[in-house]
Nucleic acid binder design. Structure first.
Lengths: 83, 83
DNA sequence: TAGCAATATCGGATTTGGCGCATAAACAAA
DNA sequence: TTTGTTTATGCGCCAAATCCGATATTGCTA
């Protein structure tokens, strides 16, 4: 699995998707990441001003991580990320 | 190029590395990203509380982007990131 | 070493995250 | 529909990012 993360929305969508796939509630994920349920809610709805460290903590709690790569043209497979 | 970005430090180091490779000053990068030189300085030194949108803007200005992937064991090639 | 460019800091102002505490609103299941 | 859960909001608070305008400091080069 490798997902494009160019906007807070894309990141939020992915977090929600993975969280649900893991059958976790926002509260459970929040506990694991050491933040509050409110914070997870904000992140999933695409909060652009979220703290970097918070995002990193949430990703780690989901066994995910960022990788930084050269920007590419968004292919067909990425289009659905918009929705 | 694909770099691990688990901590603000790793992200900051990468930003600085790429910026220099592109022969840009912090001020030039700041202009392109629509932020201030001070902000670039903070990010490069690993500011953990940087805003997500700011990081994204800086990466975009460097023609980079995040990708979210399943967490893996950090290999030998990643160790140097620590320094 | 001198001098200019580049980076790190500073004070004040504004804005917002995330916390604690709490609740409303939305969902899903019985 | 009714109940229990999950998610979205609200208010006050503190800390800190970022902005603006400058200035120490550091670093590189001549």
């Amino acid at each position: 699995m490798t997902d494009l993360a160019r906007t807070p929305q894309q990141i939020g969508n992915l977090v929600r998707r993975v969280r649900k796939k893991r059958d976790l509630s926002q509260t459970q994920l929040a506990d694991q990441a050491g933040v509050r349920q409110e914070t997870i809610s904000l992140i999933e709805t695409g909060n652009p001003a979220a703290r970097l460290e918070t995002i990193l903590a949430v990703l780690a709690a989901l066994d995910l991580e960022f990788r930084i790569v050269a920007r590419r043209k968004a292919g067909p497979a990425d289009i659905e990320e918009i929705f």
